[in-house]
C-alpha cells in the first residue's frame, strides 16, 4: 500500500504568502458557488424523491465538486 502523508510533509512546510491566502479564498468561493448552483438541482430532485418515497441512486450522481 502506498503511504501518504499530510501535505506539505513535515519539514517541507513553507511560510504562507498573500498569494496562498488569495488562492484559498478563491477555492472557498468555488466551494460555495458549487453548493449553490450545482447543488440546487440535486437538492430539488432529492427533496422531491424524499417526498414521493422514491430512490435517489448515488451511482447516477453528477461529477465531483471541489472538496470542502
Amino acid at each position: 500500500m502506498r503511504t501518504v502523508s499530510a501535505k506539505p510533509r513535515k519539514g517541507q512546510e513553507r511560510a504562507r504568502s498573500f498569494l496562498d491566502d488569495l488562492t484559498l479564498l478563491i477555492y472557498i468561493a468555488k466551494v460555495g458557488l458549487h453548493y449553490v448552483f450545482v447543488g440546487r438541482p440535486i437538492r430539488k430532485k432529492f427533496r422531491e424523491l424524499q417526498r414521493t418515497g422514491g430512490k435517489f441512486y448515488v451511482d447516477e450522481a453528477p461529477s465531483p465538486r471541489p472538496r470542502g
Partner: peptide, 29 residues
C-alpha cells in the same frame, strides 16, 4: 460523500467554508 455535501444544510456549508479558512494556519515552518 459528495451527495452528503450537496444536500447538507446551508448553515453547515457556511461553517465548512469558515473552517477551511481557519485551517489555513494549520501548518507552516
Amino acid at each position: 460523500d459528495r451527495l452528503f455535501s450537496y444536500v447538507n444544510s446551508w448553515k453547515a456549508v457556511l461553517y465548512i467554508m469558515k473552517n477551511i479558512w481557519n485551517l489555513r494556519k494549520s501548518t507552516g515552518p
